[in-house]
Amino acid sequence: MEMPISTIAFLVENKPGVLFNVTNLFRRRGFNIESITVGPLENPELARMTVSVKADAKIINQIVEQLDKMVDVIKVKRLDPIRTVMREMVLIKLNTIDPMSREEALRCVNEYHGLILNIEPDSIVVEVTGEPSTIDEFIRKVQPLGVIELSRTGVTALEKGHLKL
């Protein structure tokens, strides 16, 4: 059975070594990270991390508890997918030498509300933002047109309403 992907958000001290300690914990306990994102908060002493993990409920519970135990981790929460908005961004460079594929590429970008960031005679760089599954879908669509390279940011997420970490 395919494991569901869970999203865990946590606040950490924004200082050197914390990212290492977090990823080291995942490595040591054999938890597999699908994606991890980090950024500072309005209070520069804090940073928020979002980790996506493919694992069963028991393992997710262990991850939350082990993270919570870390001195550098201030708060940790598994996000309920129904009560959470999730976004990921992809930058993707498409081959557009063929005018037909160029047209098709622009149509896809439009359909996914993407932005064109750069146009060259033979390639374009576009940005698409959405749920991770939407990004997967977009990549599948443009794959036949010729993807030169791509870079995904990983998932970031916030809970809906007044819920917060």
Partner: peptide, 8 residues
């Protein structure tokens, strides 16, 4: 005393 030990 270590909550992460429960059900580990």
């Amino acid at each position: 005393i270590d909550r992460s030990e429960i059900d580990k």
